[in-house]
Amino acid sequence: MSEWVLQADSLSKRFGRKWALRDCTVSIPQGKVVALVGPNGAGKSTLLRLAAGLSQPTSGTIEVLGHDPHKSNEDLLRRIGYLDQERPLYRGFRVRELFRFGADANPGWDMQAAHLYVDQLGISLNDRVNSLSGGQQAQVALTMCLAKKPELLILDEPAAALDPVAREDLLRLLMRQVSDNGSSVILSTHALSDVESICDYLVILSHSRIALCDDVDFIVESHRFLSDPTSSNSRLPDGTTIMDTRISGRGVTHLVKMDLPIVDDSWQISEPTLDEIILAYLRQGVRNGLLDHVETPVNTRVLP
């Protein structure tokens, strides 16, 4: 068994003349709940579809649980649960019929769990998919993934467009699965609060490239705000890379990534929240997009 649930090596995907994903090299360890964050069109769905074997890379390689997902290998398919962004379901089916399909198509299907999940969510097995609300459809679609009992869940915006209660229920259901089965999860999301509360690994995609990929705790530990209220051109401590800069009046505040502990009394140091770090990276992605030719990896770049 591979210790990585997903490994990509200079993975690229092009649609016509547009690159949806470019030169992505990333390794995601087992047992994590991974948040895939990035602006719309950054390539999140493309990456997840590649991981689910629904499309194949233009160049580079991707391995999921140690296998090439596009080879349409039944054994691998059994170990993956994929939830598409559009949550496709056979609309004319009743929930019971969808589950029958799931049971027929998956040897590891847990019918009891499937019944329990929808029961908790107040959905009847006799309900038609058509007649369910958007949130309930999302929950049924997620249940289809969970009842497969996969090792890896690949979820494309599982909680998007849900009301707060439905969203909470859905994420809790997901976390229960993680705690019961030890499944790994890769989910894309726009809600930073999800990242904070349920994810322990973070991948930021920006303009078709990986901008950051690491353990959430490590990310928080390795970033700091450095501010100097009186001068805007003080020398930075060694081993730091500026990710974001805000100039106010005379002073300046940098968000820096640090490779060494900072021992420099001339700066006021404070710890950023995860949200602040993510937003800084996303903003930087926007700036890079405007420059639009950057070839150097983001995490070693120093902005002027």
Binding site: L171, M175, R176, V178, S197
Partner: peptide, 16 residues
């Protein structure tokens, strides 16, 4: 138990 906490609040079991 971790499972109960996960049922109470939306949180990653690893965090618990």
């Amino acid at each position: 138990s971790v499972r109960d906490v996960v049922t109470q609040v939306t949180i990653n079991p690893n965090t618990v």
